[in-house]
Each structure stands twice: as structure tokens, then as C-alpha cells.
Design a protein around this nucleic acid. Structure first.
Lengths: 144, 144
DNA sequence: ATTGAAATTGATAAGCTGTCTCAAAATGAT
DNA sequence: ATCATTTTGAGACAGCTTATCAATTTCAAT
């Protein structure tokens, strides 16, 4: 596990400890692979890891990615018929423009929107931990 | 069909005419029910209409809602494991502040955020049809 | 280091949502 | 009214995700 993933590893361990869960070889392996991606599906990770670990089950991948969501390391996003698991640390504050016709996804970042979100939260007594902003529409090619 | 839905009915007829499709009792019924909602799932509409029309098939609902998407009256949005069909004519978007601790949900609306969203979309050549904004955090009670 | 209760895994069955199939019915142009 | 074409309803089917469960692994307490 690269050094730069130590922080996430610690976050996972903390979550495991709090919930009487155990650190397994598979969880370490999947975390390591997950942190290298910006976002990935369970199926894609299954095929990716099959090379180095042929007996890693698909159910374990799903269970572990959902665990990462609980631990705040990942965020599930449903698009089409599949679920994308977004890497929170990569994401930082990236949001998505999604073409409903061809499925194209454009990532963007907008500080002004972030600031307004904070404002709205403060007005309502909230402290924001994460957010999800998705804009659905047609990309330049599909709108014709 | 209420008078206020005449415009949508005409839009549907125009689409049907252009594509050699036919206006059926079911399509009228489903349109009428759909226009009364801000958004709905196929399953929910199935149960809702089952009372007045027990033999209306679920497949027909799906087919018809997808037809509405093609006709520009509806917009499909994947939410959780299900597909929400949004009523395009309802413009009043409410976004959500969600407390991850107690589950409290506060709805809000912010024109400035909406405007910035349009800006971002335009910069990327997109035309927005719908969006989804959720802020996750702790509400005033739970943050202590 | 060993033990043992509790959690996890892998393989697969089951569940859910949405689409496809096809014979019967409805539509609408003629 | 006729008839080619489209649509419907019911259920089969397909894709993605979760549940089941015996075998294995983890880890805290010896």
C-alpha cells in the first residue's frame, strides 16, 4: 500500500474499530485498488483484480465497496443500470455533468457553488461533510 | 384531462404524429396521471393506477414513461436502485440538506446556485434538463 | 503460541428493476 | 367497415446487486 494511502487506511481502520469489524487481506487489497481510481464499478474492479487474485468473489467486492461508503471513503452513484463508486479523496470537490443521451460524464469544480452551499448550510444550522451535485442534460453532440 | 394539461397533450400528439405512433387510451391515462406529479417511479404509478384500471400492465407504464422522455415531457433520473421520471413542466426544484446522523431532511431552493449551474453547463456545451443537489452533514442538534 | 467466539469470505441462489416476446386487441388511414 | 400497423398485457428473460450459508479467517483473551 503506497504511503499516500495511509490516511485512508487509517480512516478505514477507525471505522472498522468502531463497528466491531475486522481488517482482512481482501479489504486491504480492495482499498488499495480503489484508491488508485477516481471512480469504478464493482464489476470492473472484479475483472481488474481477477488477474492478481482469481478467487476474490464479486460479492466481496460489492460488500467492501459498500463498506467504504459507510466509512466515508466512497460514494455510490447510480447511472444507467450500474453503480459507480466514487473515490471521495480524488473527488475532492468535483461534481458531474451527465449527458442523459450518450452517458458522457464531465467533471467540474466551481468554488462559487461550493461557497453558496456552505452559506445555505449555515443558514439552516448544518455543517456540511460531503455533497453530491449532478447536472443532467444533453451534451453538445447529443442536443442536435 | 384538465385544461392545464392541454399543452403537454398537444406536445405528445405532435411527437406521436412525427413517429407514426398512435394515441391510445393508456397513453392518455398515464399522461394525465404523470402530469399531476413532480416525479414518480413506474412501480408507484402502476400501483396508483391499478385502482382505476386493474389490467394496465407494468410494461406499458415503462414503455409509456420512456415515450414521454422521447417526447421531451419527462426526464429519467436514476435514484437509488430505481428510476425516477421527472415531470419537466415542474420547474420548482427543491434541493436537500440531509443530516447523516438523525436523517433529518431540509428542503431549500437557491437561485444563485441554479444560475451558476447553468453557467457551468453552458461552458461545457451542455443543456441542463434536471439536476440533483444534496448536502450531507450534521444538523444543529446532532453536531454537539 | 493457542484457543475460540465472532466476523468474513466465496460460490451461488435469490431478488429487484427494467426490457423483450408474442398472441390478441386497438388504432386510424383508406 | 376494412385492414395494415401499432399497441397492449402477461409473463419470460436479462443485468445488477444482495442474501444465504458452510468453511475460513481474524483477533482478543488466555
Amino acid at each position: 500500500m503506497p504511503n499516500k494511502h495511509v490516511k485512508e487506511m487509517e480512516a478505514l481502520k477507525e471505522h472498522l474499530g468502531k463497528h466491531q469489524l475486522k481488517l482482512t487481506r481482501q479489504r486491504e487489497l480492495i482499498l488499495s485498488a480503489f484508491l488508485r481510481q477516481e471512480h469504478i464499478t464493482a464489476e470492473a474492479m472484479y475483472h481488474q483484480l481477477a488477474k492478481s487474485d482469481p478467487h476474490l468473489g464479486l460479492a466481496t467486492i460489492y460488500r467492501t465497496l459498500n463498506l467504504f461508503c459507510d466509512a466515508g471513503l466512497a460514494q455510490a452513484r447510480h447511472f444507467g443500470t450500474q453503480t459507480q463508486y466514487d473515490n471521495i479523496s480524488h473527488k475532492g470537490h468535483h461534481d458531474h455533468l451527465i449527458c442523459t443521451d450518450c452517458g458522457k460524464i464531465v467533471e467540474f469544480e466551481n468554488c462559487d457553488i461550493e461557497r453558496l452551499q456552505e452559506e445555505v448550510a449555515t443558514q439552516n444550522g448544518f455543517i456540511i461533510k460531503t455533497h453530491r451535485l449532478e447536472l443532467y442534460g444533453l451534451c453538445s453532440r447529443c442536443r442536435h
